[in-house]
Simulated assay, not measured.
Amino acid sequence: MNNHITITSNETYIMLKKLLPILFLVAASVGVKAAKVDTVLTHSDIMHKDIKAVVITPQTYKKKTPYPVLYLMHGFSGNYADWVSKVPSIKQLADVYNMIIVCPDGGFSSWYMDSPVNKDWMYDTYISSELVKYIDGHYATIKDRAGRAITGLSMGGHGALYLAITHQDVYGAAGSMSGGVDLKPFAKDFGISNILGKYEDNPDSWAKHSIVGMIDQLKPDVLKLTIDCGASDFFMNANNQLHDLLLKAKIGHDFTVRPGGHSWEYWGNSVQYQALFFSRFFNKLN
């Protein structure tokens, strides 16, 4: 199904979205035990270094019960601790939806890609291979794409879609919040040239690494997608373009535009709705 601006899948989804604030109030009022937040040290063989990640397990967590995992990515110049420090309510999302949330470290400006020009930046391989294997090996997880989703903000929005499209055998659902889904207009910004080289030297590489240039790798009803962006965000035009391209290719997706800009206030609100979307995917409701 192809969804247009601010459209949800069905009446049940709309009702659940309205109930989100009530769910959190109820959880708080009954004194629900808090989710557990760990900072783990992982190792990347491909980059020859140790990398930290935040892992949030729900208060119901038991080693004998497999849980779905949501990988939640930070933005440009951020790190693994951004989400849990700027939006502490994500701990409640782990409890409400009974999922594990993993916040990887994507470096200052990796854009979550394997760099074709600098082998010190191989964050595609790190997250989708090395980190996923670490999480599956150390936690009780659903070790299948049906139990994995990935999303993120800004650079992390690009990264989440990029990794999900590139590794459709690893992730079953993906999202983007204020994602930088077209890299080409920002050839001199956000450190992207450190990853892809100068735009003028290889414009084709920039096009192929932009989400708007990867639509042909998608097939209908394979990867569940949810994309949103603030109406006053500087990435809004690129997100509108992505929405139009997905519609043209008949790739089903949720696409939402809300008031707001490129800010933690926006992302703190957005992640609640995306978590609902992924919970529905995990429970085979989407």
Results as ranks from 00 to 15, higher is better:
residue 227 I to E: 03
residue 1 M to H: 12
residue 37 V to N: 07
residue 76 F to W: 15
residue 151 T to P: 00
residue 47 M to V: 06
residue 35 A to I: 09
residue 278 F to K: 04
residue 27 A to S: 15
residue 79 N to D: 15
residue 255 F to A: 04
residue 71 Y to V: 07
residue 285 L to E: 15
residue 176 S to N: 01
residue 132 V to A: 08
residue 253 H to A: 13
residue 57 T to E: 05
residue 18 K to S: 14
residue 141 T to L: 12
residue 156 G to S: 10
residue 193 S to R: 11
residue 223 L to S: 02
residue 216 D to P: 00
residue 133 K to S: 15
residue 63 K to M: 02
residue 78 G to K: 05
residue 59 Q to K: 12
residue 245 L to Y: 10
residue 116 P to A: 03
residue 107 G to D: 03
residue 84 V to Q: 07
residue 219 K to H: 13
residue 205 S to D: 03
residue 57 T to P: 06
residue 202 N to S: 14
residue 109 S to E: 13
residue 273 Y to D: 14
residue 213 G to R: 05
residue 260 G to L: 08
residue 14 I to L: 10
residue 252 G to T: 05
residue 256 T to R: 09
residue 61 Y to L: 11
residue 230 G to F: 05
residue 111 W to K: 00
residue 40 V to G: 02
residue 194 N to F: 05
residue 254 D to C: 04
residue 12 T to C: 01
residue 39 T to W: 00
residue 67 Y to E: 12
residue 152 G to W: 09
residue 197 G to N: 05
residue 240 N to R: 14
residue 97 Y to G: 12
residue 282 F to L: 05
residue 173 A to M: 09
residue 246 L to G: 11
residue 269 N to I: 11
residue 119 K to H: 07
residue 162 Y to F: 15
residue 113 M to I: 12
residue 122 M to W: 02
residue 124 D to I: 04
residue 281 F to N: 09
residue 261 G to W: 08
residue 138 H to M: 06
residue 228 D to C: 07
residue 101 I to F: 11
residue 226 T to V: 12
residue 96 V to K: 11
residue 173 A to I: 07
residue 196 L to Q: 05
residue 45 D to W: 03
residue 217 Q to I: 00
residue 91 K to C: 11
residue 131 L to G: 12
residue 157 G to P: 10
residue 116 P to L: 07
residue 11 E to H: 11
residue 61 Y to C: 09
residue 55 V to L: 09
residue 267 W to G: 07
residue 161 L to Y: 01
residue 205 S to T: 15
residue 78 G to D: 05
residue 31 G to A: 12
residue 281 F to K: 06
residue 226 T to Q: 09
residue 218 L to Q: 06
residue 256 T to L: 09
residue 281 F to V: 13
residue 101 I to P: 11
residue 148 R to I: 07
residue 161 L to C: 01
residue 176 S to W: 01
residue 61 Y to P: 10
residue 138 H to T: 13
residue 104 P to W: 04
residue 125 T to P: 07
residue 265 E to N: 12
residue 32 V to A: 14
residue 238 A to I: 02
residue 270 S to L: 00
residue 138 H to I: 05
residue 129 S to Y: 09
residue 276 L to N: 08
residue 50 D to S: 15
residue 260 G to E: 08
residue 205 S to F: 01
residue 278 F to C: 04
residue 118 N to P: 01
residue 174 A to W: 00
residue 33 K to C: 06
residue 19 L to V: 04
residue 281 F to Q: 08
residue 65 T to L: 03
residue 83 W to A: 10
residue 115 S to T: 00
residue 104 P to Q: 03
residue 67 Y to V: 12
residue 204 D to H: 10
residue 113 M to R: 10
residue 154 S to V: 06
residue 112 Y to K: 04
residue 95 D to W: 03
residue 81 A to I: 12
residue 100 I to L: 10
residue 278 F to I: 04
residue 156 G to L: 11
residue 155 M to F: 05
residue 158 H to V: 10
residue 183 L to F: 09
residue 22 I to S: 12
residue 181 V to A: 02
residue 91 K to A: 15
residue 179 G to T: 01
residue 34 A to W: 00
residue 153 L to K: 03
residue 260 G to A: 10
residue 117 V to E: 01
residue 230 G to P: 08
residue 277 F to D: 09
residue 196 L to P: 04
residue 175 G to E: 00
residue 270 S to I: 00
residue 155 M to V: 08
residue 8 T to C: 05
residue 178 S to D: 03
residue 104 P to H: 05
residue 86 K to W: 02
residue 176 S to I: 01
residue 223 L to F: 01
